[in-house]
Design a protein around this nucleic acid. Structure first.
Length: 264
DNA sequence: AGAGGATCCTGGGTGC
DNA sequence: TGCACCCAGGATCCTC
């Protein structure tokens, strides 16, 4: 989509997680996408109209590119057209379809001139793979925090972009229990945790992400990092290091998978 | 201030 | 086969 012009937009319902922008189709039609970007789990498209189109996939959202004189891409997991909520018709003939069964995703427009005040991104922590993230940063950010490290790493204002899978995997690699208080991480544990987070994220990106049931890239291809999970979704299965059964507990309403022997 | 629960949805899996 | 129930990649709002 980068550099391409949106000819028209088809919006099939009034809302996803939130209502679509007022006069959404009208405001994006004819706009050129100057730049596509990402911040945390938010996708951004800088439009030639001076607005930024912000898009979030929620848990089951997916963009699929089609058209352009090519046969439609094959969808290995099968998209149900009932959940095609938005279709971007590009001037070059491509279509970009947003499909989202659970509708936890959303799209919003915000002026580029004041994008630094866009509320959902204002309090974001550093990107894991950026210079702003390090063991020293974790030392500062986690100091005095009584919350479990599991919850702290899911908090996007502490570190941006980690979800439940990658937090579980990073804590396993760092040998840290998800139940441990965040305040006990600074020091040697942070020195293990920061590189573990970097490695998990980098490897998952390299593997094309983790396809549990819905996720696929814009060409419909599945990721394969799910085959490399050490603990996530492996309750009762043996720890790959020590053989002990992987445990599952619920923290802050989310499953935490961990090895009670290797993670302390 | 910060933690935990409920909530927004649909669909897949499991147990009876 | 059908039904009830649980679980799921996220983020936000509300209580306590």
């Amino acid at each position: 989509m980068e550099g391409a012009v949106i000819q028209s937009l088809l919006q099939n319902r009034p809302n996803l997680r939130f209502p679509f922008p007022e006069r959404f189709a009208e405001r994006v039609s004819g706009a050129r996408i100057e730049r596509l970007g990402r911040r945390a789990k938010f996708l951004t498209a800088d439009l030639s109209t001076g607005e930024v189109l912000v898009m979030h996939l929620g848990m089951t959202g997916r963009f699929t590119v089609g058209g352009g004189g090519l046969a439609d891409f094959h969808h290995e997991t099968g998209n149900d057209a009932r959940h095609d909520h938005v279709v971007f018709h590009m001037e070059d003939g491509h279509t970009v379809t947003y499909n989202d069964p659970r509708r936890f995703g959303f799209m919003e427009l915000w002026p580029a001139a004041t994008f630094d005040t866009y509320p959902r991104l204002m309090a974001m922590g550093p990107e894991p793979l950026s210079n702003g993230f390090s063991a020293a940063y974790l030392d500062t950010a986690l100091k005095g925090k009584a919350t479990p490290i599991k919850a702290a790493l899911l908090d996007q204002s502490i570190i941006a972009g980690l979800g439940n899978i990658y937090v579980c995997e990073a804590l396993y690699r760092a040998g840290i229990s998800p139940k441990r208080k965040a305040s006990s991480i600074p020091g040697q544990r942070a020195a293990r945790l920061a590189p573990a987070i970097n490695q998990v994220i980098a490897e998952a990106i390299d593997a094309g992400g983790s396809s549990i049931s819905d996720f696929a890239n814009a060409s419909g291809e599945l990721g394969y990092f799910q085959h490399r999970f050490d603990v996530y979704d492996r309750e009762y299965k043996p720890c790959k290091a020590c053989g002990a059964a992987v445990k599952r507990i619920v923290q802050a309403g989310r499953s935490s998978f961990y090895c009670g022997t290797c993670q302390r």
